[in-house]
Design a binder for these strands. Structure first.
Length: 277
DNA sequence: ACACTGCCCTGCGAGC
DNA sequence: TGCTCGCAGGGCAGTG
């Protein structure tokens, strides 16, 4: 599941391969809805001849800046994969879209579950995206007091609050479970119950798990691959995510981990280290 | 403004 | 062995 470290890993890999290139055309595969309501043929006409000026990431959104302030916005959702391949390379297994570039390479979008999207966005769309999302947790200014301000008035479980992209941008199920474990906070604790002192630790742990995830080039628990089709290695650093169902032992205290559902998401935690509310 | 639910989608693994 | 069925979950629409 691509979260901030995975999306940033993809962006870092793509940037040198696509910036400065010009789009020639867009070739559909078998999923007409991949570009939203816009027909692929229409999109191809709109994109033909336009340059890719740069790449940006906001939360889990990836932006390819075009001319005229427009951009191609990609969200990988659960199983989206972006690769750059020679035009002669065969289609990927779940390929949904191929953006042909002027140097003979293709930017390919593959997505097993058809949740991901590649959308042409206007300058207004982009500024809307920038403002509606919460702060970037790896940028300067994201600290204990800032986190406390974001969560102390919230009456939902802290896990739900941290998953809310309008509150903090880029966290998903994996990194939230990991951060809460390292901060020793039970995922069902209400946002309003988190103290200022706990916010300092939690903000630190959020930054830590994201930084490690980025260093490991992402978590490839299932389908995540980088631009070159390589797996990340952060799954080896995970200590709670995916381990609660089997009641595997807590790495800190040895007692069996537990698994519950919060906000419709599987949630693993240590009932001993993360005290109940 | 906020909280919560259901929907989208399909490969995979558990169970029979 | 082969089948069915539930699970995985990010974002959004709809409801309260």
């Amino acid at each position: 599941m691509p979260e901030l470290p995975e999306v940033e890993t993809v962006r870092l890999g793509l940037d040198p391969l696509v910036v400065g290139r010009t789009i020639e055309r867009v070739t559909p595969a078998d999923f007409p809805g991949v570009m939203g309501d816009l027909a692929i043929e229409v999109a191809s006409t709109r994109l033909a001849g336009r340059p890719i000026r740069g790449t940006r990431r906001r939360g889990k959104y990836l932006l390819f800046d075009l001319d005229d302030g427009e951009a191609l916005m990609v969200h990988l959702r659960m199983t989206g994969v972006l690769t750059v391949l020679p035009r002669s390379a065969p289609s990927e297994r779940f390929q949904r879209l191929s953006i042909e570039l002027d140097n003979g390479s293709d930017l390919r979008f593959s997505d097993q579950r058809k949740f991901g999207r590649v959308i042409i966005v206007s300058p207004d769309d982009i500024s809307g995206l920038m403002t509606k999302l919460g702060p970037e947790p790896l940028e300067a200014g994201f600290d204990g007091p800032a986190l406390f301000e974001l969560v102390h008035h919230r009456k939902a479980p802290i896990k739900s609050v941290l998953l809310d992209q309008h509150t903090i941008a880029g966290l998903g199920n994996i990194y939230v479970d990991e951060a809460l474990f390292h901060a020793r906070i039970h995922p069902l604790r209400l946002g309003s119950s988190i103290t200022a002192d706990e916010s300092v630790v939690l903000a630190e742990m959020i930054r830590m798990v994201l930084t490690v995830g980025l260093e490991q080039r992402g978590t490839s628990f299932s389908s995540f691959r980088d631009v070159y089709g390589q797996k990340g290695s952060n799954q080896e650093q995970l200590v709670v995510y995916g381990r609660g169902a089997g009641q595997l032992p807590c790495v800190r205290c040895g007692s069996p981990l537990a698994r519950i559902t919060i906000a419709g998401r599987g949630t693993s935690y240590c009932p001993t280290c993360q005290k109940r509310p």
